[in-house]
Design a protein around this nucleic acid. Structure first.
Ligand SMILES: [Mn+2]
Ligand SMILES: [Mn+2]
Ligand SMILES: [Zn+2]
Ligand SMILES: [Zn+2]
Lengths: 154, 154
DNA sequence: ATGATATTGAGACTTAATTGCAATGAAAAA
DNA sequence: TTTTTCATTGCAATTAAGTCTCAATATCAT
């Protein structure tokens, strides 16, 4: 694990601990290990991958425990649910990462991240107009990336 | 069924038939009835609701047949997959309906549709900036509807 | 250390969705 | 019209993600 990743993990660990304390829940060794495993992924993961990763790291933590930890990690804001790929729900480590939305190339699968302040503000406005209290949102634009579009035009 | 709904159904029927012919598939009575049932929903539906609706209309069509019809209806552009609410996948009749995005209440499941021209334009701008050619997009905002927020505040 | 209670693992369970198969039906060919 | 072909259907078995039960265990405030 790289140095800065390690620091990130320590910070995330703290955040999770605080969250759990607030909820009067316990920060067990299993939950610690799950968080650590999440940080060893680049970004995206699903429950099965997490289970496997934990086993690789020598920790046998049951699927039930992982499934029970997910809602807590979501609530604490450490991870978010990512786009449903096929059947399995996948998640994204978003600790200390800025919010962003996605352009997804339907041809090559390339993902371009973007952030547009104006779009974000307008979403808030829409919510106000409908007396709706937003928790989170997801904007995904499917299409062709530059390279693929050039190729397909031929 | 109202007059204009009926006309819509006839047009959708034609579109589906053309699609199936192109794919060298058969437009069976079951598929006709499924399409008709979809038009008797306001907009959104899931497979279970569709199954029930068909039964109400006196037609016993197996779940397997419905599940097998869904990909065809998606490919033909008559329906789109909506946001996963809870566990079941839900769909939306989009034939001859204007594009719109969604506010989804995570508490009661209520769906509010909205359309914001500025957001749409800004998305186009984002795509241009990245030399990305958009095909379709989906914007979903999860949160609490007015009623649920009031209830939960107590 | 003690005690209240949150948590865990294992496997049973639930349920959305898929699939195999024999019977049926649509539609093109004769 | 009749024949022929093969897509389609219903049913039930199957798969697999996710949830739940419960006895044993771990955490943490006191
Ligand atoms: Mn955004
Ligand atoms: Mn839109
Ligand atoms: Zn591409
Ligand atoms: Zn609500």
């Amino acid at each position: 694990m790289k140095k800065n990743e390690e620091i990130q993990l320590i910070n995330a660990d703290q955040k999770f601990e605080e969250f759990l304390k607030l909820k009067e829940l316990k920060y067990t060794s299993e939950r610690k290990l799950i968080l650590k495993a999440i940080f060893s992924f680049d970004k995206h993961f699903n429950v099965e991958e997490l289970f496997e990763k934990l086993r690789e790291q020598g920790n046998h933590i049951s699927r039930a425990t992982i499934y029970r930890a997910i809602p807590l990690l979501l609530q604490s804001g450490l991870i978010t649910e990512a786009l449903h790929c096929q059947d399995k729900t996948s998640y994204e480590n978003v600790f200390n990462r800025e919010h962003h939305d996605h352009l997804v190339c339907t041809n090559c699968g390339k993902i371009i991240e973007f952030y547009n302040e104006k779009i974000e503000k307008l979403q808030e406005e829409v919510c106000r107009q409908h007396n709706f209290v937003p928790i989170e949102h997801r904007l995904g634009i499917k299409g062709y990336c530059e390279d693929c579009y050039k190729k397909l035009k031929k």
